[in-house]
Nucleic acid binder design. Structure first.
Length: 450
RNA sequence: GCCCCCAUGGUCUAGUGGUUAGGACGCCUCCCUUUCACGGAGGAGAUCGCCGGUUCGAGCCCGGCUGGGGGUACCA
């Protein structure tokens, strides 16, 4: 099995493209491979850059960067489609010579006029000219069909198809022609791509036909939509892979989540590693209907992956994300409470930068009846502690709760606000322990004085 | 307009002739360190888009319709 991911560098790698790349990767790394049990297939990366106007080197870099971050490594490439121009021209000359293609100066205007005469369901058929763009000859009748690996039989009546333009008047080839030639040359066995390519498939099939070659198998993945049910775009928030990375999502979680948008790996389980997904992925299990991207669920899954990481590894990632160091102790007590890397600093940053300033929290919690009194007692008890760890801190705080007949929060919240500056922090006992006796006492004093 | 694809709670999915239609996210209630999150216990939420047909029996099979999506470029 030989698959490929062929993005066009006209923008950043979007979630839809990422999922296409992921599914191809899963196929190449899974047990699939038709008969070749346990044998890894190969994954080719090809940059579809025949549109010289819109393709940029910066976009290529961004796509490569996003794929690397996701861990979707490829075996061959990145191949540049434009680099294969000589071969494209040869194939084009062959089709022209054999009468499978012809020059035509007909433009959109001419095609429209043609349809007005012949009916909207009649595909355009031009007459050969000496020069002009090159059109592929589509049979007048019959159907061009294929067995889509996710959708089953799909067929297009030839009569309804226009003779597609496969090369511009200047001789440069167009997408539908270049892809077919490249897929053939690269020995691609399975083309797995977005559903937006489904109507391109018959054209490419016709190119294979004209070339007298056996086409690969095709599979078209359902679209990914935004929350409004529209095709995913920049308007939908974090639509590109780098945006997701910048917002603190883990590549493990992004892969896991986008894989779920389109297929299930088990009836009652959703947390999977790449290896598990590769092991279980099957094209015939892929959904045929479009899916809506839901960041809430991504967040949840991210939290799961985050917690599945060893503390040292999570610390390493958080240090890279925040640009700070010495985070391990804070990470250890915060990991249960964050869902993304970006959640960490707002929760635990005060451990390094000192309490935050939240006047409302201060006024409300420390202004509550008896709060300062409670805090004063807490201070004395903590200051007198011999062994200063989370367990000892908890004992003291609970003693205050019990002896005064208060609710836990009436003791914990004033303390929390005193040391964190807000009502938000990791678990209070652990936080106090990490802070240490001296800093804790000093912070309480400061709060009581303020 | 024309061609193609699709249709299970708000969202993602499981379910391929007989199930109280399963799970997850989200939402609500309660518990846990009155936050946040995790975990736990409950709950609301689906006439399986609609109408016919096949069948003893249909979410599952067939047809039509409606709705949504994709394509319709000398873009990819």
């Amino acid at each position: 099995m030989r698959v490929r991911f062929a993005p066009s560098p006209t923008g950043a790698l979007h979630i839809g493209g990422a999922r296409t790349a992921l599914y191809n990767w899963l196929l190449a790394n899974g047990p699939a491979g038709e008969g070749a049990a346990g044998r890894r297939g190969s994954f080719v990366l090809r940059i579809e850059d025949t549109d010289r106007e819109r393709s940029t080197e910066a976009n290529v870099e961004q796509i490569l960067d996003a794929l690397s971050w996701l861990g979707l490594d490829w075996d061959e490439g990145p191949l540049s489609q434009i680099a294969n121009t000589p071969r494209h021209r040869m194939a084009l000359a062959q089709l022209l010579a054999e009468g499978h293609a012809y020059h035509s100066s007909a433009d959109a205007e001419v095609v429209r006029a043609y349809k007005e005469r012949h009916g909207a369901d009649r595909g355009f058929r031009g007459t050969p000219e000496a020069s002009g763009a090159v059109r592929l000859r589509v049979p007048d009748d019959g159907v061009t069909s294929f067995t889509d690996l996710v959708r089953g039989e799909v067929s297009f009546p030839n009569a309804s198809m226009d003779d597609p333009i496969i090369a511009r008047a200047d001789g440069s080839v167009l997408y539908n022609f270049a892809v077919a030639v490249d897929d053939l040359d690269e020995g691609i066995t399975h083309v797995v791509r977005g559903e937006d390519h489904i109507s391109n498939t018959p054209k490419q099939l016709l190119v294979f036909n004209a070339l007298g070659a056996e086409p690969p198998r095709y599979a078209h993945l359902p679209m990914l939509l935004g929350a409004d049910g529209k095709k995913l775009s920049k308007r939908h928030g974090a639509a590109s892979v780098q945006e997701l990375r910048d917002r603190g999502y883990l590549p493990e979680a992004v892969n896991n989540y986008i894989a779920l948008l389109g297929t299930g790996f088990a009836p009652d389980e959703e947390f999977f590693t790449m290896a598990e997904m590769a092991e279980r992925f099957r094209l015939d299990r892929v959904s045929r209907s479009p899916a809506v991207f839901d960041e809430q669920k991504l967040r949840h899954l991210n939290g799961m992956h985050l917690r599945a990481l060893p503390v040292d590894e999570l610390t390493r990632r958080l240090e890279q994300f925040t640009g700070r160091s010495g985070l391990r102790a804070a990470v250890e007590i915060s990991r249960e409470k964050i869902q993304t890397l970006a959640d960490f600093w707002p929760l635990a940053g005060f451990l390094f930068d000192g309490p935050r300033t939240d006047p409302d929290a201060l006024a409300k919690v420390l202004g509550a009846a008896g709060a300062r009194d409670v805090l004063t007692e807490v201070r004395q008890r903590l200051a007198a502690l011999e062994v200063f760890d989370a367990h000892a801190v908890e004992q003291q705080l609970r003693a205050v709760v019990a002896e005064r007949g208060l609710k836990p929060g009436q003791v914990f919240q004033p303390l929390r606000v005193a040391i964190a500056g807000t009502t938000v922090s990791p678990g209070i006992f652990e936080t106090v322990a990490v802070l240490g006796r001296d800093r804790t006492v000093a912070l309480i004093d400061r709060a009581l004085a303020g």
